[in-house]
Every structure is written in structure tokens, then in C-alpha cells.
Simulated scan of single mutants.
Amino acid sequence: MRQALTPTDRTNVTPSSPAAPTRTRILDAAEELMGSIGLVRATTKEIARAAGCSEAALYKHFSSKEELFVAVLQERLPALGPLLRDLMADPGDRGIEECLTEIARSAALFYDASTPIGASLFADPALLRRHRDGLRPMGAGPHQPLRELAAYLRTERAHGRIHPDANPDAAAALLLGACFQRAFLRHFLGEAPEPADAFATALARTLLAGIGR
């Protein structure tokens, strides 16, 4: 992910390459602005100006700011959803500790990158409600990783790799909640926590100690 811009830089954002396709330039600008000044203040008008295109051109590629936000999460931030869906479909031959470690690392990096983008929504209840309503038809939202991780853990339980009495929903909340808390503290305190690899390894082992066979 590129270096985030300060709020005073927002009118000077430029795409990485003027020759890049319009959709790419829009995503470049949206990622920069949403990460630096937050989702609320990053209007489609500002994003289009930073991308070097008209607002009408932006809406030819994205039907709403919510759709653009989801595209930034899916295409530009550390992959979490695709990893969970792949594991849910086929855990493969990897051990569950390895899988949980990979999930925890991806989740820690994802929340670290996405927390500054969405945090400003909570300052405006009406805007939060509109944003939530906009995400619902797309099947998107912060609850999706929880559902997908719980589904993966149910698959592992069916394969006998975690305890039959383990609660997949609770285990998913514990793992992803810890990753979100790490991101929140990093941004609030302005201090880097332990490296993501070490954090993910410790978290996976600790969780597995409670739900493993």
C-alpha cells in the first residue's frame, strides 16, 4: 500500500501514471484519499479530481461510493475474504495451525489498513446508516469475514481437526476481534505493535489450545 497522504495533501493527489486506465486511476485516488482523510471526507468529486477524470466518468465504473469502497477493500488492501473463501471451499493438506496463522496475519494486516478508512463513518449516524444500506445489496460488510471464518472452522470441525464441542462463531470472533484490537491500538497509540507474523503465530496457537483436539 502506498504511503498515506496527510489531509492537507488531498487536493494534490495524483495517480501513479496518467496513462493508466481510468478505473485504475480512480482506485489509486480512492485508496489514497480514503486512507488519509477517511471515507466520509473522501467524496466522489475529490476522488475524481485526484484521478484526473470527471465525476461522471467515475460513475461509469462504480455505481456508488459504497461500491468504490468495496472495490478498494477487495482489490487494494491485504486479501482476507479470498483467503477465507478458499479455505472454506478446500482447507487442503495444511495443518490447522498453519491455516489459522495465515488467517490471523492476513486479518491483522487487513484491519490495520482498513481501520483508518472506515473510522470516520461512526461520527455521523445518518451517514453510517446510508453506508450500511448501500453495502447490504452487495453482500458486503464487516460481518462477512466473521461468517466466512466461522464456516471454515465448521469445515475443520466436520473433518475432526478441532474439538467437536468448539463453537466456530465464538472462535471466529475471538480471532478477528484480536486482530481488529491490534489495529485499533496501533492507530490510537501511534505505536507499532509486535510484527504481524509474531502476533499471528501466538494468536493461532493460543486459539488452537482452546479449540483443538
Rank of each mutant, 00 (worst) to 15 (best):
D86E: 15
P164E: 04
A123P: 01
A183S: 10
A170P: 02
H163K: 10
P137Y: 08
R23L: 11
R205W: 05
L153E: 05
S16I: 08
A202D: 14
G139K: 05
A158D: 14
V13N: 01
D86T: 15
P145G: 13
E97C: 04
A209Q: 00
H61L: 07
A30G: 05
L121K: 02
S63K: 08
A108R: 10
A113D: 06
G81T: 14
P168G: 12
P15T: 00
A30M: 04
D165W: 06
Y152H: 11
A79C: 04
A42H: 01
Y152C: 14
F62L: 02
R213W: 08
E191Y: 06
R76L: 07
H61E: 11
A170K: 05
A209V: 00
V72H: 03
G38V: 09
T155E: 12
A158G: 14
G35F: 10
A71G: 05
T44M: 03
T101K: 11
A108G: 06
P195H: 09
G134M: 05
E75S: 07
G35Y: 05
E55D: 13
E148Q: 15
A4V: 14
L27K: 10
E75P: 05
I47S: 04
P78S: 06
A173L: 15
A198F: 09
R132E: 14
A126V: 10
P164S: 04
R85K: 14
R161F: 00
H163V: 04
L121N: 00
L149E: 00
E156K: 08
H61A: 07
A48L: 04
M34Q: 13
F69W: 10
I103A: 08
L39A: 07
L5S: 09
A173N: 09
P125N: 01
F122H: 11
F184W: 11
R132Q: 15
E46H: 07
N167V: 12
H187G: 03
M34Y: 13
N12G: 12
R23V: 15
I117K: 11
Q3F: 08
S120K: 02
R186Q: 15
T44K: 03
L68M: 02
N167Y: 02
P164H: 07
L174S: 09
A166T: 11
A71Q: 06
L176C: 01
L80I: 10
E75R: 09
L121M: 01
P116F: 09
E55L: 06
A50T: 10
D124T: 01
L83G: 10
A107K: 02
R136D: 09
A20H: 03
P15W: 00
D165C: 06
A178T: 04
S63R: 13
R85Y: 10
